[in-house]
Simulated scan of single mutants.
Amino acid sequence: MLPGLVGLASFAGLVAAEGSAWAKGAGPGDPQKLEVPGHAAAYFYPPGGGGLQPILMFLHGRGGNPSEDCRKWARVATQFGWVVCPQGPEDRGGGARGWGNNPVAGKDTIDSVVKALRAKYNRRVQLRNNVLIGFSEGSFIAMQVGIKDPQTWDKWLILAANDQYWWGEENKHLLEEGKKRIHRVYLYTGQNDEVAENTKRVEKMLKDAKIPVRMNIVNGLGHEVPADRMVTNYRRPLLWLMAAKKP
């Protein structure tokens, strides 16, 4: 068992807490702010453990609020490592951000955030074999960045994956090469999400490329990341991803 991971009884307790205290507004507190030269500040929560720890980076959807999203993910992910939430380069007002459908700018933002976190906390921040999490437009960016930089991001949790995010011969080639470097991918999509069938095609593409993948098409869930079900929905996927053997 991985250090710090709790058993099923404790997991049931976390789920109960999620349905009570967190539903009443309790939670991890406000995220810390990370200044990123040349980019908007990112939000983050330190890991629960000491020493060198991986990054779990969440890429928000179009119009998402990175600060609030980070608060949600802290509820489930700080036991695994640094929870880091960049702000996309597009300012949509009122705290909402977007990625402008631009994976090149997205990768520049992501790389700059990792560099800034490492500069601030030195060898407490792992630079390889980290986890990339994306939702909606953030899934598009995650699927583009992850396939091009599997050394940094070898584990992915993709929420509302869409096969149309991978097009052209370059992506096909990168996907074929990915079996050597992408270690686990978890696809999580609501049954009522219009991209559910696209997610199934992504699973097939990953299987064909011999990349370890799991998929969950969730009954009763739409195109959303419910704040009151973070542990219930996403703890098991993260456990599976973090159990991947380091290369």
Rank of each mutant, 00 (worst) to 15 (best):
M1I: 01
L2F: 06
L5W: 01
V15P: 02
A16E: 04
A16S: 05
A17N: 09
A17T: 09
E18R: 06
E18V: 06
E18K: 07
S20W: 07
A21F: 06
A21D: 09
W22S: 04
W22V: 07
A23K: 11
K24L: 15
K24R: 14
G25R: 03
A26V: 02
G27F: 04
G27K: 02
P28W: 11
V36S: 02
P37K: 00
G38F: 03
A41M: 07
A42Y: 00
A42W: 01
F44V: 10
P47V: 11
G48M: 08
G48P: 10
G51M: 07
Q53W: 09
I55Q: 09
L56P: 06
M57W: 04
F58N: 14
L59N: 09
G61Q: 07
R62A: 10
R62Y: 08
G63R: 03
G64H: 05
N65F: 02
P66V: 06
S67P: 05
E68Q: 11
D69W: 11
R71T: 10
W73E: 10
R75I: 12
V76W: 10
A77C: 11
G81R: 09
W82L: 11
P89Y: 04
E90P: 03
G95N: 00
G98D: 02
G98P: 00
N102D: 15
D108P: 03
D108H: 10
I110V: 15
S112V: 00
V113H: 05
K115C: 02
K115E: 04
L117Q: 03
L117Y: 00
A119Q: 05
K120T: 08
Y121T: 02
Y121R: 09
Y121N: 03
R123K: 12
R123H: 13
R124G: 07
R124D: 14
Q126M: 11
N129K: 13
V131I: 13
G134F: 13
G138C: 14
F140Y: 15
F140G: 06
A142C: 11
G146Y: 07
K148H: 15
D149L: 08
P150V: 05
P150H: 08
T152G: 13
W153K: 05
W156Q: 15
W156Y: 13
I158Q: 09
A160V: 10
A161R: 14
N162G: 04
D163Y: 13
D163M: 12
G168R: 07
E169N: 14
K172G: 12
L174C: 12
E177R: 15
K179G: 04
K179L: 15
I182R: 08
I182T: 15
H183V: 01
V185N: 04
Y186W: 12
L187F: 05
L187H: 05
Y188S: 08
T189R: 02
T189G: 01
G190C: 04
Q191Y: 04
N192H: 14
N192R: 14
E194M: 14
E194K: 15
E194Y: 13
E197P: 01
V202T: 04
E203M: 10
K204E: 05
K207H: 03
D208W: 00
A209M: 05
P212N: 05
P212T: 08
R214Q: 09
R214P: 00
I217G: 04
V218N: 03
V218C: 03
N219V: 08
H223C: 06
A227N: 05
D228M: 10
M230I: 04
N233T: 01
N233I: 00
P237L: 01
W240L: 06
W240I: 03
A243V: 03
K245C: 00
K245M: 03
P247V: 10
P247Y: 01
